[in-house]
Design a protein around this nucleic acid. Structure first.
Lengths: 152, 152
DNA sequence: TTAAGTGCAAATTCTTTGCAGATTA
DNA sequence: TAATCTGCAAAGAATTTGCACTTAA
């Protein structure tokens, strides 16, 4: 598990080495991002930081784009119409998403077998995997219980 | 492997039972979709059908939405700014996507281990998987060769 | 006949960009 | 000081919707 304060320092240090400046507003967005436990979209990140520091939506977009470019953030797509972000799996350990098509609830799920799939992809096709996204769509336990397990 | 003519008939029959009509323009979009081997986006599907039948872009959007709703099409996201569609994996057999972050080339890749991951997800969390998306981002063989395998 | 399907243009929604002023190194 | 950063408003791009007309059942 990554440490958030460490991650934040690493991001700012990496940015600094690339000629990006250590701005207080951008830092507030980085803070909101590394502190979040869920998969926030731009609007949600904005609603966190705008009260704190009078930050504009555009700054959130620009900061998230940088975080993706530099490999600290990864875009995830839960088919709800928003681009969402999470801390790059390579930093925190790979995980998959179980997405309930009834209630929209997201469960994170770890399974080491993905590593084997990536290894086979490399062996069979010469493709060199860097990171992945696995989203499994289905019906969560609670919704199945509500429906009397019809979804079985 | 599904048969395309059979699939098309199945779609139209399912639509008919739901009170949707058998319209020639919608059929042209369905045709273009079931005949395609790649992951077409709306604009690409439109460019196929507009010459044939004077169909509007809006009809393509509406048809693809129906195909997704009824489970015949699945949206895929290759992070190129477009929503792309493929025939639902449940109908043709599951496959994964290897996406080259240099040249954008997509390779389809089959690996049965995903079934085991889905099974473990069900056992561990009570989640009932219906379908999944696995996208592995990395560098394809050709790009690696061009780069002298730096990406290793 | 009548409910569904369609195209056009307008409206929405998410995201990016131009530019003048603010901030950081 | 000099380059980067920022917010605002405007522009873009993908997608949806309102509405009058067309078509299938």
């Amino acid at each position: 598990m990554y440490n958030r304060a460490v991650l934040k320092r690493k991001i700012i240090s990496t940015f600094g080495k690339s000629g990006l400046r250590n701005s207080s507003k951008r830092n507030a967005v980085i803070d909101a991002f590394v502190s979040s436990n869920t998969h926030l979209n731009t609007e949600e990140l904005y609603s966190i930081v705008k009260s704190k520091a009078g930050i504009g939506l555009v700054t959130v977009y620009r900061t998230m784009r940088l975080l993706v470019q530099y490999g600290f953030a990864q875009e995830v797509d839960f088919q709800d119409g928003f681009t969402r972000y999470e801390i790059n799996d390579d930093l925190s350990g790979q995980h998959e998403h179980l997405i309930c098509i009834r209630c929209g609830h997201i469960t994170e799920f770890k399974d080491g077998a993905i590593q084997n799939i990536e290894r086979r992809a490399r062996t069979k096709t010469g493709f060199s995997p860097l990171h992945h996204r696995l989203e499994i769509f289905g019906v969560c336990k609670l919704c199945r219980e509500k429906e009397g397990h019809e979804a079985e």
